[in-house]
Structures are given as structure tokens and as C-alpha cells.
Design a protein around this nucleic acid. Structure first.
Length: 765
DNA sequence: GGCCGGGGCATTTTT
DNA sequence: TGCCCCGGCC
């Protein structure tokens, strides 16, 4: 093993070496938090801790994987195999599976993802004949999730006056009832949702001291990453596991706590010392990531928050450039300026695309950016977009697999009972489900024996149901002996999914079939990997558990691809880029308009802005638009009041910026940065935006009426997509308004003349 | 049972 | 603007 201690600074080393009780490492942004955690584990290993006696908990698979890789590099690879390192959810999912019988579950329970949960809540709301506009499924889902994360079971929820009153005041008094039904349904279906994995673990540990004791004995040391993001359920699990030996080492940054809406409680970190009175606090304050200006600017922002652990983050890098603040006329212009700036910086500073990230508050903002980047042929990747396992075709196949290992899985059944179409439609399904609810049995119990439930269905329908039932039973039977890949292959073939996709010769259809093939590869890969790690057998259940807890993060396969990264600020946490754009810095957007009634929520938004700024290593460029198209209309916007929180000395109002040409002529405007001395950047912003130095770009519709080079947004030579004919190129354009026509040469359908009024053309590139 | 189109509606979301 | 839900129609 390398002499790892030499690679740490004094403070980091102190934290790693201290071994005399609970430790809290308050790690500022970019201060080498993961490094400390990794070396701490290496240190424990070197001092005689067995790998299987170390439990290291993270929030993302990616964090766990990266830490494993780093550990493998400084210790031995085989060691990391036996470490208990993973996300809270995956680790306790394994434990729950092992101990399921203690809490009345089968060890083959399946997992509801957020969509499954929401869908179930929706059906319950319908069954209770409540109005979906009053009882918004998303809101109810949040309420239930928060309750679970706060370890409030449905029973407790209904009994507790506080919840009742709160729901009553929110005009959704029956939330407790929905929660109760939701829990019952999950239990009957033999499934757990994400929150259950933590809630049930707590129940397990609370009610079964011998089980708890077993794990207390096993885990001699417990480490937690991103502790500021733990919720009560997680905090308590850790506390229980450590209560005897107090070998607990947690790392986090309270200034980066941005997940309270998911139940994270920053108090877990702020009051760590109350929970562990003998704890020692270590502060890592040296930032290794960013230039001094960036660190100082971020500090000046975050000091405006009241609740925080005091620390002074500093950088010893060069001063670097100031942050820059750029005003744009519209969201479109904002996107255009960002892409221009990227091109400029690449040109003059020798950056590549992958040195840039564009961060925004909401996913909806990515659209304009994407469009603009495409037009400028800038390669980009949107993170947090639909992940592989979220695709419909993949979810469909996964649903079959879920039903095979747990036929009671109601949401999975719902997905596949009529896909591919087999004539079991909504009405029939509702009847089946109503019977299941009325008799308090699983949906599968009704499906596998419909005649026992006096359903008002026809003979023909009953036959269809029994065919479906036999199909599933056949799969279940095969799964006893077949490998995971074999059973998945059979399912795709015999369910009819393959034929449906095969018969769809559209571009989308072909890609869906490829995705399904890719799923088989993924299963194969997973099994091979596990076998290589020395496991005797790898079941379908193992794969499904892994898949259920996987999210988008995992596909960083093309990490080396040279692309600009687009993502929400939330998704950017933990990442770093040489150059960061923070766009849409406007009131009502960032901070979100929904936080304004709560000072705590405003502080969280400010932390979010802090996270955004601290992603930047060299340059941080902040933009806002004076007009933004949102929810179908354009609204005028004002620069975020958070900008006022950044001290003026660290931020510049941008100089000359080229405005979008739209291909209709060029305009160049420059920002008149206010000369008047001002103590806050805010004044400058105001003077800039109100003096309106940025002119509106000409609108596309004002294009000239020459030889009809273009009509509306279309020009000759444009590549377009037609819903029927596919992709093609515009050869000519003619006519006005109602009669505007285009002659288009389609790749697969030949040349067509289309009336623009009817042809819904979509421009590509 | 299943498809199409009008109307209402929009945070963030490690698992 | 784009998604999702529901109601009407085949």
C-alpha cells in the first residue's frame, strides 16, 4: 500500500488518523472530501479492520463506485470486493432481503420506483372517488414520502393530530387514509418503495434487537458521505448501528445541503454534536478546485445564510478571473450568447467542449439551449434526461421480469397485462383490481383464479385472462432453472414484445428494438461481473434489485466524449468543470418562486446557487434574461436578488457580446457597464437591464418577401421531419400564409409538395 | 377496447 | 411550448 498519508494535507491527515470516537468532517466545496473518506478506509484496513466489517454509505451509485475505484488503486482490488460500500438504499435493500421474514415480507420483494408509487397513489385516489385536482398525486406522494422519511407509518400518521390538522388546512384531509391504503397495497403486492427500504430497515432494527445486534457486531466502522443530505430514517439507522462502538465517521458540507424537499434534514449535520457528544469536528477549508475569485465570491454569497457551521473556505490558487454577469434580452438570446461565448473561449483559450457546463434551475430550460447548441454544431450532453432504464420499452420488459419473481407486483402487472395488446382493457382491469381491493388480496390472486371472485366479465375476457396467466406461469416455471439472460430472452420472444417492436419499422421502433437487445447485454454483463467477483449464482432477482436502484448517473461510458454538459444545478453537485455557465438567474426562477414563503427554503435556494458557483474551476459566467418564454407565454423577468449577495469586487458585468443573427442579419451590441462606483453588483445589474442596452433581435416572421428563401422559420435547404414521410430536405418554398407550400425531398418517401398549413414539419439541426 | 384530439397544467428529485 | 388526462368516436 502506498504511503497515503503523504498525499493529505495536515487537516485531512488529522481527520484520517483520529480514531477515538465519532468524527464529523465539515468539508467545504472542493476540499478533498472523497479523498479523506477513501484514505480513511485505507487507513482502517491497514490497521486491521476486515473489509467486511466496514460499512460506507453514499447517496449515489456513482459515488460508491468512484470510491471503490480509488480504493482499489491504493489498496488491493480484492479488498474492495468485500467492503460494504454502496448507497443507503442498495445496502439496506440487501439486508432487508436477507431478513425479510422478520418483518413479514418475502425475500423476493420487488421495488416500486417513483413512477410506480405515483401510479398507485393515482389509482387509490380514483378508487376513493376523490378529485385529482384537489388531491394531486404528486403532492400526496410527497406527503407520504416525507412521512416515511420521518419514520411516520400510516398508522401513526392517522393518529397524529399534527398531520391531520396540516392536511385539513391544506384541504386534503384524507391524505392519511390514502397513505394507509397505499401501505396496505404495497404490502399486499409484496413490494417496497424507495422510502420503505429505509423505513422498513428502521422497523427491522427497532423490533428485532437480535438482528440489529448481528449487524452492530459485523459493522465495526460506519462511514457516511454527504451527511448533510441524510434524512431522519438514514440518520437513525446509522445511529443504531453505531450506538455501541461509536465508530462513526461522517463527511459533509452543510453549505451544500440542497435536498430538503426529499426529506434531508440539515440539522443532522448541524446538531451532530448533540447526537454524539464525544464527537470531534474536523474542518477542511482549503479548496483545491477553484481560483480565489470564485471561492471568495461563493463565500460572500453563502454568508448571507443564517443557519450554517462557520468555516472559511479559501483557495491558494491564482486569483483568476472575476465571475461575469451577462444580461440577455430573451431566453433565446441568452442561449445564443452562451454558445457564442463557448465558441470564443474554445477559439481563443484552447478549451474543448468538455471543459464547459451549462447549469440551470429547471429541466425545462434545457430546450432552448439544446436547440441553439445544435444550430451552432456544438456537441453537448443533457444529464438527467431520460435514462436507459426509464425508457418505455425497457420498463415493459423489466415489468415482465418483476412479475416473474413477484407475481403480486401490482404496478408491474398493470403495465404488461395488456401489453402487447391482448384484449384486457381498462374496464376489465378495473374490475380485477376492484375485486382484489374488496377481498383484500393481491391482484395476482384474482387474475390467477377469476372465477372465484364473481367478476362481471364475459367468457371471452376470462379466457384472455387465463391465457395471460398461463403465459406468466410458464415464465415462472422456466425461471426455476434458466439463467437470467435466458429467461429474459424467452420473455421478450414469447410475450410478443419482440414482434410488436419488430413490426414497427419507424426510426423509433428500430431503436426500441435495439434498446431491448441492449437490455439483454446489460443483464449478461451484470451476471458475468458478479460471477467474476466470486459469487456462486446470480439470479434474476439480483439483477432487478440492482436495476431498481440505478439511475441515470451510470451511463458515463462516453466520459471521454468531447461534449458540453447540460444539467440542473442539483445534478451538478459533486462535479467540477473548468468553465461553468449558470443561466436563468432571475427572480421566480432562481430562486424558485415556490420557496418565497419560507426563509428556510430561500436559504436552500441560496445554497443551490452556492453549489452552482463552486462547480467552476476557472470561469463562472452567470446570465439572466429580461424576457423568458415559460409555460406557453413570454414573461418579463428581473435579475435574481441573489446576485446582490455576491460582493461587487468579485463579479464583472460582461463587456462586448455578440447578439444572435438568426440568419437574418447581424447585430452587435455591447453592455455598458455602469461606471458609477457601487458596493454591490446589484446596482450594476439594475442599471444595465433597465437601460436596455441589449436590443431585441429581429423576429423570424419579419423576414423579407424575396424569392421565398424562407417562410416563417423554414428556409430552403433546411432538414425537416414530417410525421408521415420522415426526414427530408426543403427544395423550394412558395405562396403566402394559407397557401404557403414547400417542395420537400424525403429520404424514404421521395419528393412531395406539402401545404405548410397542414404539414407539421419539424426542423432538424 | 382503442385511438385521436381538445383542454388544463406546469420545481428541484442522489434512491 | 409540450405532456398528460379525459371524453368522444369508431
Amino acid at each position: 500500500m502506498k504511503d497515503y498519508l503523504l498525499e493529505l494535507n495536515d487537516f485531512q491527515r488529522e481527520a484520517v488518523l483520529y480514531d477515538d470516537g465519532p468524527s464529523l468532517v465539515v468539508a467545504g466545496a472542493g476540499s478533498g472530501k472523497t479523498r479523506v473518506l477513501t484514505y480513511k478506509i485505507a487507513h482502517l484496513l491497514q490497521n486491521g479492520y476486515q473489509p467486511h466489517s466496514i460499512l460506507a454509505l453514499t447517496f449515489t451509485n456513482k459515488a460508491a463506485r468512484e470510491m471503490k475505484e480509488r480504493l482499489a488503486a491504493i489498496t488491493d482490488e480484492y479488498v474492495t470486493r468485500y467492503l460494504w460500500m454502496g448507497t443507503f438504499h442498495s445496502i439496506f435493500c440487501s439486508i432487508l432481503r436477507r431478513e425479510a421474514q422478520h418483518i413479514g415480507y418475502d425475500s423476493n420483494f420487488t421495488i416500486y420506483d417513483a413512477n410506480d408509487s405515483k401510479s398507485l397513489i393515482k389509482s387509490i385516489i380514483k378508487e376513493m372517488q376523490l378529485d385529482e385536482k384537489t388531491y394531486r398525486p404528486g403532492v400526496i406522494q410527497n406527503r407520504i414520502s416525507n412521512a416515511k422519511n420521518g419514520l411516520v407509518t400510516s398508522k401513526a400518521y392517522i393518529q397524529e393530530k399534527g398531520f391531520r390538522d396540516y392536511d385539513y388546512r391544506s384541504k386534503i384531509p384524507l391524505t392519511g387514509e390514502i397513505y394507509q391504503r397505499y401501505s396496505a397495497r404495497c404490502y399486499n403486492a409484496g413490494v417496497m418503495d424507495f422510502d420503505d427500504l429505509l423505513l422498513q430497515t428502521n422497523i427491522l432494527f427497532r423490533d428485532h434487537p437480535t438482528v440489529l445486534h448481528k449487524y452492530q457486531e459485523q459493522f465495526r466502522y460506519v462511514l457516511v458521505d454527504e451527511y448533510q443530505d441524510t434524512n431522519l430514517a438514514q440518520h437513525l439507522i446509522v445511529k443504531r448501528l453505531c450506538e455501541n462502538h461509536l465508530h462513526v465517521f461522517v463527511v459533509g458540507d452543510d453549505a451544500q445541503s440542497i435536498y430538503s424537499f426529499r426529506g434531508a434534514n440539515i440539522d443532522n449535520m448541524l446538531r451532530f454534536q448533540d447526537n454524539y457528544p464525544t464527537c470531534r469536528v474536523f474542518k477542511l477549508e482549503r479548496n483545491y478546485r477553484s481560483t480565489r475569485n470564485i471561492v471568495d465570491a461563493a463565500n460572500s454569497l453563502i454568508t448571507k445564510n443564517k443557519e450554517q457551521i462557520h468555516k472559511t473556505v479559501y483557495s491558494e490558487k491564482e486569483k483568476g478571473s472575476k465571475l461575469s454577469l451577462v444580461s440577455a434580452y430573451s431566453d433565446y438570446d441568452e442561449a445564443y450568447m452562451v454558445s457564442s461565448k463557448i465558441m470564443d473561449m474554445i477559439h481563443y483559450n484552447d478549451y474543448s467542449f468538455s471543459d464547459f457546463a451549462i447549469l440551470y434551475r429547471t429541466n425545462a430550460q434545457s430546450r432552448v439551449l439544446e436547440e441553439t447548441l445544435r444550430n451552432r454544431t456544438i456537441k453537448y450532453r443533457v444529464y438527467g434526461a431520460q435514462s436507459f432504464y426509464q425508457r418505455k420499452e425497457i420498463k415493459d420488459v423489466i415489468a415482465y421480469l418483476r412479475v416473474i419473481i413477484n407475481p403480486k407486483d401490482e404496478e408491474a402487472l398493470k403495465r404488461i397485462i395488456n401489453y402487447p395488446l391482448r384484449g384486457i382493457g381498462g374496464t376489465t382491469f378495473d374490475r380485477l383490481q376492484a375485486a382484489a381491493v374488496a377481498e383484500d388480496v393481491s391482484l395476482w390472486a384474482v387474475i390467477s383464479n377469476p372465477s372465484a371472485y364473481r367478476l362481471a366479465t364475459s367468457k371471452g375476457t376470462e379466457h384472455k385472462i387465463s391465457l395471460f396467466c398461463r403465459l406468466i406461469e410458464g415464465f415462472v416455471e422456466e425461471n426455476r432453472t434458466a439463467t437470467a439472460v435466458e429467461i429474459a430472452t424467452t420473455v421478450i420472444k414469447e410475450s410478443g414484445v419482440r414482434d410488436v417492436l419488430y413490426n414497427d419499422s419507424t426510426v423509433e421502433g428500430i431503436s426500441r428494438l435495439q434498446n431491448v437487445q441492449e437490455l439483454l447485454n446489460a443483464i449478461n454483463q451484470f451476471v458475468t461481473m458478479r460471477l467474476e467477483q466470486g459469487l456462486e449464482t446470480v439470479s434474476l432477482t439480483d439483477f432487478l434489485m440492482e436495476v431498481a436502484l440505478i439511475t441515470d448517473q451510470d451511463n458515463d461510458r462516453d466520459e471521454n466524449a468531447d461534449k458540453v454538459s447540460l444539467m440542473t444545478v442539483h445534478a451538478a453537485k459533486g462535479l467540477e468543470f473548468r468553465n461553468v455557465f449558470i443561466v436563468g438567474m432571475e427572480n421566480d426562477l432562481f430562486p424558485s418562486g415556490m420557496c418565497m414563503d419560507s426563509p428556510r427554503a430561500v436559504e436552500e435556494e441560496r445554497r443551490l446557487f452556492y453549489v452552482a458557483i463552486t462547480r467552476a474551476q476557472e470561469n463562472c459566467i452567470i446570465t439572466f434574461a429580461q424576457n423568458r418564454f415559460r409555460n406557453g407565454q413570454t414573461n418579463s423577468a428581473s435579475p435574481s436578488f441573489f446576485l446582490e449577495d455576491i460582493e461587487a469586487q468579485y463579479i464583472d458585468i460582461a463587456g462586448e457580446i455578440e447578439l444572435p443573427s438568426h440568419g437574418y442579419g447581424r447585430t452587435t451590441a455591447s453592455y455598458s457597464s455602469s461606471r458609477s462606483p457601487s458596493s454591490s453588483s446589484w446596482d450594476k445589474v439594475r442599471s444595465t437591464s433597465s437601460s436596455g442596452t441589449i436590443q431585441s433581435s429581429p423576429s423570424p416572421s419579419s423576414s423579407s418577401s424575396d424569392k421565398l428563401q424562407s417562410i416563417g422559420a423554414l428556409s430552403t435547404g433546411d432538414r425537416v421531419i414530417h410525421t408521415m414521410f420522415g426526414e427530408g430536405e426543403i427544395l423550394t418554398l412558395e405562396g403566402k400564409n394559407e397557401n404557403a407550400k414547400a417542395v420537400i425531398s424525403f429520404a424514404n418517401s421521395g419528393v412531395k409538395t406539402l401545404l405548410l398549413k397542414y404539414a407539421k414539419l419539424k426542423k432538424v439541426k
